[in-house]
Design a binder for these strands. Structure first.
Lengths: 221, 221
DNA sequence: TAGATTGTTAATCGATTAACAATC
DNA sequence: TAGATTGTTAATCGATTAACAATC
């Protein structure tokens, strides 16, 4: 596999390729072209070819890509050949919802522990996981070789949780709290705050409609 | 307000500015510089100034930005001056979790209806919303002037839900299902599938650690 | 006046797309 | 051989950053 600086945009697309390829495999499709992929994933075929070519020559001219082989390669690139252990802090509604995604994450990742700082939540069962107190985080992270942390606590607690994860040796964090976390350079953080996504959608609403429906939007007194 | 092509990257940052500015306002901070904002939000101050300057001259040289004024302006740009109505389809764990975010969305948006296609869910109470059957979607969307739809159903149902939203006149969709939706050009879709984010994090894991712990990762047979 | 900070231009950097020779 | 499709180069497009005159 070649080594060079890979752009973030490319890395963000790899899981999307992987997801669709897995679907193709289930449907017993053996081969796929960048054309097909582009159509399905709303991407330019040239971009897909270029993305994949960063990591090696995975296709065959005139034929396309072998689905099974490409899946294997992408999992290798993403370091998903061994299942990665994940821990989650914040056993609220969102945390509980995400804890149920193990079946979807399949062989790639597994949420192995759930923590919460607040007594009413501790000891509660979510799926087959018992909510643990924050005091056990460091030990559990080390014992299970947890490498990624998910944060689903309120904004004002998120930085503390991030610190705890970093201290425990977690290498990456997926942050659902609406706040920008400060972490050392060697720790990667992805923001997953859905309210940001939702509010930005408003920009694209059709302005024409604004005052269309009569009486729906009276002047402010 | 100037008119010109605004990049998606800029629009994605506006809600992040808005969020922090709102926090500043609650703390009764009156003025903020691009320097301050950049430090807090991990962005280049020049970028912040440029982002804002696309829409007008909101700051004062030598002083910075008036917090209240900038909030007002950003809400205007994002068309959040009137509360926007949102509907959600999929009353599973994730859907229920998101339905509870109204307090956080404040004056900006409001989830006004929740739908599900499956009888056991229908009639269920989530907060003060009753889960409605899909048959009522179109009418409810029109009655409440719902402009944004949220999809939290399994992947295989997501396209149907998107179609229903589009038919009902929804202008934008936030899609949590792990699938790429096909919609007409005038409808905006943002992907919010967290498994994609999570898997892409794996790429940034520290390779050095891979075979560090002895015996943890035996060779395949 | 001196210091701070904007708005904006120019320079740089990065990502996407088009085009096509190579080849299955 | 003819058609399809990759891998890759070059061209284009878009986003970020540096630098600084204007000015509070």
């Amino acid at each position: 596999m070649k080594t060079m600086k890979i752009s973030e945009a490319v890395v963000r697309r790899l899981p999307i390729y992987l997801r669709y390829l897995t679907e193709l495999q289930q449907r017993e499709v053996l081969t796929v072209s960048s054309q097909d992929l582009g159509l399905k994933l709303d991407l330019n075929p040239a971009q897909i070819r270029k993305d994949l070519a960063y990591f090696g020559e995975f296709g065959r001219k005139g034929i396309g890509y072998d689905v099974a082989y490409l899946i294997q390669k992408i999992r290798q690139i993403l370091k998903l050949n061994h299942q990665i252990s994940v821990a989650l802090v914040g056993a609220g509604n969102l945390g509980q919802a995400l804890s149920n995604y193990n079946t979807y994450l399949k062989d790639n990742m597994k949420i192995v522990a759930v923590f919460d700082a607040h007594t009413p939540k501790i000891g509660k069962k979510i799926n087959n996981l018992t909510v643990q107190p924050m005091e056990e985080l460091e030990q559990t992270v080390r014992d299970h070789n947890v490498r990624i942390g998910i944060i689903t606590v309120p904004a004002f607690e998120a930085q503390n949780v991030a610190n705890a994860f970093v201290n425990a040796g977690v290498e990456a964090i997926l942050n659902f709290a609406p706040v920008i976390l400060k972490v050392p350079n060697h720790v990667r953080v992805h923001a997953a705050d859905f309210t940001t996504d939702l509010l930005s959608l408003a920009y694209y609403l059709d302005n024409g409609k604004e005052d269309e429906e009569d009486g729906e939007e009276p002047m402010d007194h």
